[in-house]
């Protein structure tokens, strides 16, 4: 009885490309939904031959790996697209990058070989940079020391229907005082400590915000100005890296 679209089914996926992109500058305020809409329009403008699902409302074949929360910047967001016609990944990178706004920069596109682990299987943790304007390195180091000495720090995270308890300590693979990538960036003047944080993507996921809440509540950190959080990398934990400074393996490598 129900109508089905006339004509043949859409062409199948012949090539899968994995994309790393950024959320820089003011683009950190885009939500995941904002990004997805902008990306699908950019696909159309750039003429990349994206494959579509079948049915009355065909969707472009795009799958997103876990997105950084609205308000946090990122150097390492990932997605995978299915193309109906094979294309040179370098050309696709250039075309998508040109079609997206400044700050959403497509930095790497590689072809996914058949029978390789999925993106999700190659990502288990994130590395974050947290800049703390108005916080000296001594204050930050003291708070980190206290935090690491604890076995568990429960924090309440506001959700749609109330609060949810998350163990911020359990998800942290490593956290230490670091060096900012762009020490002059931002509006801050005066002291500004930088933390490097590696967090496992456990369930429930621990976000940098949860760790900051834990540092404030359990370790006496005070942040006079809103911290600036940037995801630097995602991937599998490199078991060869030191315990106090975990490194991640490139999921596109």
């Amino acid at each position: 009885m129900s109508r089905t679209p006339d004509g043949p089914p859409p062409p199948p996926v012949v090539q899968r490309l994995r994309v790393r992109y950024t959320k820089r500058g003011r683009m950190r305020f885009t939500s995941h939904r904002d990004f997805a809409r902008a990306f699908e329009r950019a696909l159309r403008r750039s003429g990349v031959p994206i494959a579509f699902s079948a049915g009355f409302s065909p969707h472009p074949k795009v799958s997103y790996a876990g997105a950084a929360p609205t308000g946090t910047a990122s150097e390492a967001e990932y997605l995978e697209i299915g193309l109906a016609v094979s294309r040179d990944p370098r050309r696709v990178r250039e075309a998508l990058d040109a079609a997206l706004p400044d700050g959403i920069d497509v930095v790497e596109v590689v072809e996914a070989q058949p029978a390789t682990p999925s993106l999700a299987e190659r990502i288990e943790a994130s590395s974050w940079e947290i800049r703390l304007p108005g916080v000296s390195e001594e204050e930050a180091a003291a708070a980190v020391g206290k935090f690491l000495a604890l076995d568990s720090v429960l924090v309440a995270r506001p959700t749609k229907d109330g609060h949810r308890e998350v163990d911020a300590r359990a998800g942290v693979a490593s956290v230490r005082l670091g060096v900012a990538r762009n020490p002059d960036s931002g509006w801050e003047t005066g002291p500004c400590a930088t933390l490097n944080l590696v967090v496992r993507h456990s369930t429930p996921a621990v976000r940098p915000d949860d760790v900051l809440t834990a540092l404030r509540r359990a370790a006496g950190l005070s942040t006079p100005v809103t911290p600036v959080v940037t995801r630097l990398a995602q991937g599998l934990l490199d078991e060869a890296s030191p315990q106090d400074e975990r490194r991640l393996l490139d999921p596109l490598g």
């Binding site: 003011r26 683009m27 305020f29 904002d34 609205t70 509006w187 100005v225 809103t226």
Partner: peptide
């Protein structure tokens, strides 16, 4: 913008205030 940006994480749908369309 430098004065506005630190306030944006605290508001609903901050993307509406950043421009860059």
């Amino acid at each position: 913008f430098q004065r506005l940006e630190p306030l944006l994480p605290a508001v609903r749908k901050p993307v509406q205030y950043v421009g860059g369309e």
